[in-house]
Design a protein around this nucleic acid. Structure first.
Lengths: 330, 330
DNA sequence: CTGTTAGCGCGTTCAC
DNA sequence: GTGAACGCGCTAACAG
């Protein structure tokens, strides 16, 4: 590759003049600058990141290191990574993403990450998981995106599931629905309690007795097959005992749609359906399109990145609003 | 960060001894090596990528640069990126991924990429798109993954859609289905012709007249709404004129399932459904689970990466097999 | 077996 | 307004 040296030679100036042309053009005489500029353009010179980083010249070459968990299994979350990348780029920061296959980074993963000398670290996971941060990493600025850790005072940007669920159920009840059936995420998932609380708070606001609610949880992360049995238990003689189905995520809603439609029920006339996640490129394809709650991946990524860039001094879980996406399934 | 210098000091040796301890331990006396090792462990020293790259010390620090298009809109394709990353890691290469929002990289994108001094470039896109490669990039080894370019002699690893569709339809017809209705991708998509050809070849093998086939195309990339009208045109008095629905992708199948079920039809008894893509985390949730053709993202990523790592001398489109994923929708 | 020197590409510091 | 020298972290080549 071409380096400052080549440019300097072509322009007939010293290395420093080229360097200045890149960072402090105003310190050069206009004509010298032009000459250097032309040489730069002709050689298509781009300064080397590595050389800049090596000097600790941190103004031009800071980088955010991202440990990404679950990207393979929950691909919708690329949005989080994209958002981090965009935010970083705007601030002139670089991003190095390392996808993790296991739950917690291996020593090899950590070495690779540290070899890039990141100025800050983001730990991201899907499904709001509890992750384990190795000691070696705690010396660097570190934020969590869409996950939590044992060390609860670490800054963590997470979806405000309580509020998201509250708002959505409140919206549903205000439409007149009164007999909800809820199929929540597995109990061990971090979101479970928040969703539960949000739903109950909304129900109370409408005077629904908490113990009158039909509530179920999936037994495991991918036990979507259980949806059928739950629904059938509450569809008697083809008539559902519930007027709205509150799903722990859009996947459950997808299963439910097929089951309900297959049993001759109309959505939302016979049964309304509420999702959670707003799976990109999927939620719109439901017929009718799914009303759901959006997981704010973009905003989470943006805030996690800004946290590092601006060296914010916040700690603990930072709830990020989950907007309701009102379509026509209720 | 700690550097060789710190390690050398702590171990009471010279810089070179540390360096050797890292790359050629056998050249050191066992005791010296142990002493250095202990210092390395104690300081948790990891050599800096940047410093290695800067030297052109290419054996320890080669990197693949990836321009990723469409990652945001077709998130399932993360698999391709993961596969590149894994393959690279196994060979000791690094990966720098740059997500593109526009169709072709901006000058700024290119500068950023080149500033990382990649030793090879991968261009990846979703939906088998035709991409445009800027001149500035053609000086480096370059492969296309899941896309094609004007310059048709560029090595491009792409799904073998013709064979994939042929095998799937052949499988369907061998099950006894005889009246297919096909809803293909939009005509302008590169895969359209291949899928068409594969389907017709399979039909011919079973003696089905090509013009007896019920064939439709979506008018645009996201015109999934058209599925309903197409199906209704061929469901007369609640009875479908087709016994198998061949969908251009799983999303079309997703819509079709809801429409068919909503009209009281059983899958696969009344109508069988065949998808294409095998959307991760979704195709399994169809009820019944969707038989579909797998887009070989993993293999494409692996081969594209190996192409650069091994400096393969192939050119032109390299079809990668699309295996049939037989579930129970037919 | 171990240390010294030199240089990769860049920018800061200090001369001119 | 411009340039020479130095150092960032690392290793190949050469000395000892």
């Amino acid at each position: 590759m071409t380096s400052v040296k080549d440019v300097a030679q072509l322009a007939g100036v010293s290395l420093m003049t080229v360097s200045r042309a890149l960072s402090n053009p105003e310190k050069l005489s206009p004509e010298t600058y032009q000459r250097v500029r032309r040489a730069i353009d002709e050689l298509q010179f781009v300064p080397s990141m590595s050389a800049r980083k090596i000097r600790g010249d941190n103004l031009q070459s800071r980088t955010i290191g991202v440990f990404a968990l679950d990207t393979a299994t929950t691909p919708f979350a690329v949005e989080l990574l994209l958002s981090i990348e965009q935010t970083a780029q705007q601030a002139g920061w670089n991003v190095f993403i390392l996808n993790l296959l296991s739950n917690s980074p291996t020593d090899q993963n950590i070495d690779l990450m540290l070899s890039h000398r990141p100025d800050g670290l983001i730990f991201s996971a899907m499904g709001l998981r509890q992750v384990c941060i190795p000691e070696r990493l705690k010396s660097k600025p570190l934020v969590l995106a869409n996950c939590l850790a044992d060390d609860s005072h670490l800054a963590s940007y997470v979806p405000d599931d309580e509020m998201g669920q509250y708002r959505a159920v409140h919206h549903a009840l205000s439409q007149g629905y009164r007999r909800p059936l809820s199929i929540n995420l597995p109990k061990q998932s971090l979101a479970w309690g928040l969703r539960q609380k949000g739903m109950q708070r909304a129900c109370q606001a409408f005077g629904l007795a908490p113990d009158s609610l039909l509530k179920y949880d999936l037994s495991d992360h991918d036990a979507y097959g259980e949806t059928a049995a739950i629904l059938d238990r509450h569809i008697i003689d083809g008539r559902p005992q519930f007027d709205i189905l509150i799903c722990g995520n859009d996947r459950i809603a997808f299963c439910a749609y097929q089951l309900l439609l297959g049993r001759g029920l109309k959505i939302p006339d016979d049964v309304a359906v509420l999702g959670y996640d707003n799976m990109i490129g999927i939620a719109e394809l439901f017929i009718p399109p799914l009303t759901t709650v959006q997981l704010p991946y973009h905003e989470i990524g943006r805030r996690a990145a800004r946290h590092l860039i601006e060296a914010l001094d916040v700690s603990g879980a930072q709830p990020v609003d989950c907007p309701l996406v009102a379509r026509t399934s209720l």
